[in-house]
């Protein structure tokens, strides 16, 4: 039997996945592009409206700001978690990794609702604070940016931890030992020797969390309570409430382009980093 050339054989292997992507992803996406340019009239109307609308601008800025805060929060908490797991966990390491992965088994919806249970006007946190006499009237813990960012940090944390964990796993303890043997204090050894080596992990974690946050819907929608409109929710409003498919599609394209720009910028940065750090 004649054998197919190797490259062709590999194409056959990816064909099913490729077909699904084209039919269910690329095709609708092209549809969105088309709608954004044709509804209700042909032309760039939707895009000019998008750039002129101050509400849209506000929502985009809000989206980037929340994504940024979420990313920073996830990096700080995630770095500590990954660092402890990699360097000090010893025998409980598998358990700790499992705990990091555990949230993936619980739907984002449930996790977001549990934040409502915690942060609501008569939620657990407010109840506890009032009954202990620390405050008189309930604090506004959700339906504002604070609540959204807090819940998003929680939901996104594993996406920050996992790349950093993978990166730290590859860093031998000998480097920090070497630094200390050469006269560096514990802190200097961390700051000058360990931390720079974790930059690729930090960068990929940051990119992952930031990009996922930009398009995130469920958590901001639930915790924002209609007051904190991130761009995904804004799009939903346009399409579901106002049946404004044209503007909604244009916004989607805008979000897609913005995300692509972020990835393109970051990918250059990350690649540059990992090229510098290449190890045999």
């Amino acid at each position: 039997m004649p054998r197919l050339p190797d490259t062709l054989r590999y194409w056959f292997l990816v064909l099913p996945a490729l077909a699904i992507m084209i039919v269910f992803y690329i095709w609708p996406l092209l549809g969105i592009w088309q709608i954004s340019l044709t509804e209700p009239t042909r032309g760039l109307d939707n895009y000019t409206r998008m750039f002129d609308s101050s509400a849209v601008t506000t929502s985009f800025i809000l989206t980037f700001r929340i994504a940024f805060k979420t990313t920073i929060g996830c990096l700080i908490l995630g770095y500590i978690v990954a660092y402890v797991i990699s360097n000090f966990a010893g025998r409980v390491k598998p358990l700790m990794v499992a705990l990091v992965l555990l949230p993936f088994w619980v739907s984002v919806l449930i996790r977001s609702f549990s934040w409502i249970v915690l942060l609501g006007r008569s939620g657990i946190v407010n109840d506890t604070l009032i009954s202990s006499g620390m405050i008189d009237s309930p604090l506004r813990l959700m339906h504002n940016e604070f609540g959204v960012v807090l819940a998003m940090i929680h939901v996104m944390l594993p996406f920050a931890v996992l790349p950093m964990l993978a990166n730290m796993r590859g860093i031998s303890g000998a480097y920090v030992d070497a630094a200390r043997g050469l006269g560096a204090s514990e802190f200097t050894a961390f700051a000058k020797v360990y931390f720079p080596q974790t930059m690729p992990g930090v960068m990929s974690g940051a990119l992952l969390v930031f990009v996922l946050s930009l398009g995130f819907y469920i958590t901001p929608a639930l915790l924002g309570g209609g007051r904190i409109l991130m761009i995904s929710e804004y799009i939903t409003y346009q399409i579901q409430e106002f049946l404004n498919w044209g503007l909604g599609s244009a916004l989607s394209v805008g979000l897609l382009v913005a995300t692509a720009v972020v990835i393109a910028l970051a990918a250059r940065f990350v690649n540059l980093r990992s090229a510098l750090l290449e190890r045999k």
Partner: peptide, 20 residues
């Protein structure tokens, strides 16, 4: 005493040159 106060030079098995 911690290693940084001992003032000994050390060459590690895998060299441990700082890759960055």
């Amino acid at each position: 005493e911690p290693p940084e106060h001992r003032d000994f030079g050390m060459v590690f098995q895998g060299y441990a040159l700082f890759p960055t």
